[in-house]
């Protein structure tokens, strides 16, 4: 059922998050309650640039991701300090290290065989314009 996928579109396509009005904590995805006790949050859009906080290279992956193996996955720390997990696309493992600057791009993240819906979302990419 694509209902669960559709529900996540604002987060996955547009990086829509939430911010606590009381303590300023950023929640991705948006939450009903903040750890500070406040239930007053407002919409907030994450920046799309940041750096690699940590990473790994998946060499044995789920069959849905077989076409990508080996692929780099990372925790990315965005410019505002928010962290998220995603793949690093088009990157050879040796190109990635902690601190490497990245930008989030719109990519296909997964698809259910040749029949199901195509699942899109964000992936990090390295700066491709450096000399």
């Amino acid at each position: 059922m694509p209902a669960g996928y559709t529900r996540e579109i604002p987060q996955r396509y547009r990086l829509e998050a939430g911010k606590c009005k009381k303590c300023g904590a950023v929640h991705f995805p948006q939450r009903l309650a903040c750890a500070c006790g406040s239930k007053d949050t407002e919409p907030y859009v994450l920046p799309s640039t940041g750096k690699i906080a940590t990473y790994s290279v998946v060499r044995v992956g789920p069959s849905d991701f077989m076409d990508l193996v080996p692929y780099v996955v990372a925790v990315v720390e965005l410019d505002d300090g928010t962290k998220l997990t995603c793949q690093v696309a088009d990157a050879a493992p040796e190109e990635v290290s902690v601190g490497t600057p990245v930008t989030l791009e719109f990519r296909k993240v997964n698809q259910v065989g040749g029949h199901g819906i195509i699942k899109y979302g964000y992936k990090a990419v390295l700066d491709r314009f450096v000399e």
Partner: peptide, 16 residues
């Protein structure tokens, strides 16, 4: 295209 790219992803990046 990358295995994770199609006309939609290319369109989005060009449009951005």
């Amino acid at each position: 295209p990358g295995t994770d790219q199609d006309t939609a992803t290319i369109s989005v990046e060009a449009a951005k």
